[in-house]
Design a protein around this nucleic acid. Sequence first.
DNA 1: CCTCCACAGGAAGCGCAGGAGT
DNA 2: ACTCCTGCGCTTCCTGTGGAGG
Length: 402
Amino acid sequence: MLSQNIFDKEFDRDSVFTDRNLLSPHYTPLELPFREHQIKQISHILGQTLHNKKSDNLFIYGKTGTGKTSTTKNVMKQLVEFSSAKNIKVEGIYINCRNHNSKYRALIKIVKDLYPEGNFMGFSAAFIYEKLVGYVRAGKQLVIVLDEVDKVKDLDELIYALTRSNDEIDKGGITVVGISNNLMFKDRLDPRTKSSLCEQEMVFPPYNAEELKEILKRRAEHAFKKDVVEDSALSLAAAFAAQESGDARTAVMLLLRAGEVADRKGIEKITDEEVKKAKNKVEEELILNMVSTLPEQQQLVLYAISVLSLEKRGIRKITGQLEEGVLFSGEIYDEYERIAKKIGKDVVSARWYREYISELEMYGLILSTNSGKGIKGQTRLIKLGFDARKIRQLLEKELMIG
DNA sequence: CCTCCACAGGAAGCGCAGGAGT
DNA sequence: ACTCCTGCGCTTCCTGTGGAGG
């Protein structure tokens, strides 16, 4: 992803970007403003390993986009660089537990990193474990970073295995750094796991608008050509992101999209207007992503709504006024039933269908009001919250219709 | 006014998967 | 490894509600 394709330069020729990779969500920034304190704290803790002592295990908590992963990776990189320069036996391993979500998978990944030439798939857990202990026993200090640690199914087992190994080794040691954005999960842990993993704890607070602006400014300096981004555009992007939970990742994403908007327009400046457009784009991406991760049955209901609201673009007379794209709960259910049967899916009861409607409304995908006068009986009037054509198109792919 | 309509949404219960307890 | 329990997704049944129509 980071490798330079020969088309990168060609593609970027008439662009506001100089290096758009710097705005990728996977990019680890070299400098981490407003995290000096955390960096100092982590390096203080992990610095023990440089004296060939096992350091305290560390648990890091903070919401998404607060720099947990970047900061930790940054410190780890420096730790490993320093130690190899000084010929000290410290090694670091980073694992994202979303991809290695069990004790066995995580251990495999660790051992594979230690012995890059070996292939350990299919070996017994005990063998893998011995391999790991054997490696450390040679007098190494191993720091293992478990990112998104709450994703590990049998975390208690994994932590137990990793910490127990220290009792079997007298020369080296294993230090565990756990990262999570879910503080609640800590309380679900076995008390022993909790006390060993959380020997040291740190919280990463969200960034405020000024901090986000500074972060964006520094990224923009390297990612864009000189003087492309207007200062007020940076402020606006920072303000948008700050109000949406202070997440640096979405702030950077906003900037990236704003640059793309400018490129498409063929202009050389990024102003407030591009940022606003980008915000809409990012929101749309979020919506479409949300729609595609919905359970199948809810997708079917939503699909029925999108079909109907396109079909009867019909303006309806309600409360004397004309309203567009408003549907009755009942006719949606009928349509949903028809579609589901046609493509051979189960049909849920009308009662449960109403629960789906409530959920879709909570997600903001649809809007609904109770029927007033002008309509017989009592029903819900339902309206799609977003562009019906886009949603229908996406769901046709998702549900493999047509 | 009463009745019917077209639903809303609460209560109870059922079958199942997965975790806890032993 | 075995049962037991629990939560979840869902159905069935039911009562409530407000306007339309006679």
